[in-house]
Design a binder for these strands. Structure first.
Lengths: 221, 221
DNA sequence: CGCCCTATTGATCAGCCTCAATGAGAGTGG
DNA sequence: CCACTCTCATTGAGGCTGATCAATAGGGCG
């Protein structure tokens, strides 16, 4: 239901009410744009929809995806707090975007972002350069890495984007599989193998402790 | 030897002499920047080198690559006449770039490109958006497509970038394999299969005639 | 406590890779 | 002009990684 409202206008009151003052702004200054909340698996925008807005994650996580008609899905990127997304495509979104878990976003008009960026974030060109850079690394991963290398790189990437040796994964195994171009079974098996080799510890299926970061890095080369 | 000269200064006379007036500018107006020639397999810039210049292909073709220490290579993109490249990375190149065949480039300083683009080409943001879009499509290809789908998509892509049903491939099978995340043998076998199915005709190994575009598109979904 | 959804584990299979040999084409030198 | 060579492409045989199909286990929530 929120999705429908979003498509017509993300500035609809229904979206800002829940947590407008519930969480403090995670960056200095008065934020521009509007804050919006999304539930788990709720669509933020769909493929081919007009690209009117640019988003910045305040809390939670977002996946941007591309689907094939037969159901195969590629997750292009996970976006965590601080990340900007919605820049795919020039006038229409080339990707779909969904909330991975409960997520709060900051929304600005695309035109405003292009001229000034988002408070506390990058300018349009900086943001695009970073995304392009990450996209290149992801291509290398998908094109030329083994399952084990992909999972190790994924864990190290998430560790860098959080902090410490404990990694809390906001997404399901299916999401990880669709991000790494693998099946859920292969991802699960690889986690188990890494645990057996004492490289990681699975405290729960969403909480991973990196026991041997150097060895994980060696796997990725 | 030209490479060495390039690294110190692409405005060295050695680079512009050969074809400064040999080929007319393929777009209206006096081109900005300097024209440079590269031989087959000659390096244009290497990974991690300072990113001082932005390039536009005038003739020939360029591949941008990422290497792993064990020799595995991913070709991120092929650039044909009209394409801009060299925007990878913010201050240093994240990719290497090499000429696929004899190639003529137009070179401008990065700062000049960022403020004004290249004559007859896109602005910085437009160019980045297009590249990001293509990168997404390539990720889907690498992550979720079969060998047959990858080769079909590759041929259709090159047909769109040239014209007519005859596709002249400037690159070797090894280049195609490294672009599609396959081996040279699998690429070759797939070409043979497509020919056996009357979808393509291999006039020579570099010249492909698309006999059934609709069927090729159906393969890619 | 029981249900449902997700994750894990097992067994088998297929697609692609690897290794190896042959074939075709371009360039070189006699 | 032709033989030679070198490189690249094609084809074949067999193995391995990861996919598929199937069953079990765990975990959150009513």
């Amino acid at each position: 239901m929120q999705v429908v409202a979003l498509k017509s206008s993300p500035f609809s009151p229904i979206h800002q009410a829940p947590d407008e003052q519930a969480r403090p702004a995670p960056f200095a200054g008065e934020p521009m744009g509007v804050r919006m909340h999304f539930d788990r698996d709720e669509e933020i925008f769909g493929e081919d929809e007009p690209a009117q807005y640019v988003y910045r994650v305040l809390s939670g996580a977002v996946r941007t995806t591309r689907m094939l008609s037969d159901g195969r899905r590629q997750i292009v990127e996970f976006h965590v707090p601080g990340d900007v997304f919605g820049l795919d495509g020039e006038t229409r979104h080339a990707l779909g975007a969904e909330a991975v878990g409960d997520t709060v976003l900051q929304v600005v008009r695309r035109s405003a972002f292009m001229s000034g960026g988002i408070d506390g974030g990058d300018t349009a060109v900086q943001a695009l350069l970073k995304k392009f850079h990450r996209a290149q690394a992801h291509m290398l991963l998908l094109g030329r890495h083994t399952a084990c290398e992909r999972v190790a790189a994924f864990l190290l990437d998430f560790q860098n984007r959080s902090a410490g040796s404990t990694v809390d994964l906001p997404m399901s195994r299916q999401d990880i599989a669709d991000y790494l171009g693998l099946t859920i079974e292969t991802v699960s098996r690889t986690f188990t193998q890494l645990q057996a080799a004492d490289l990681i510890d699975l405290e729960s299926c969403r909480r991973v402790i990196l026991r041997n970061v150097a060895a994980l890095q060696r796997i990725c080369e």
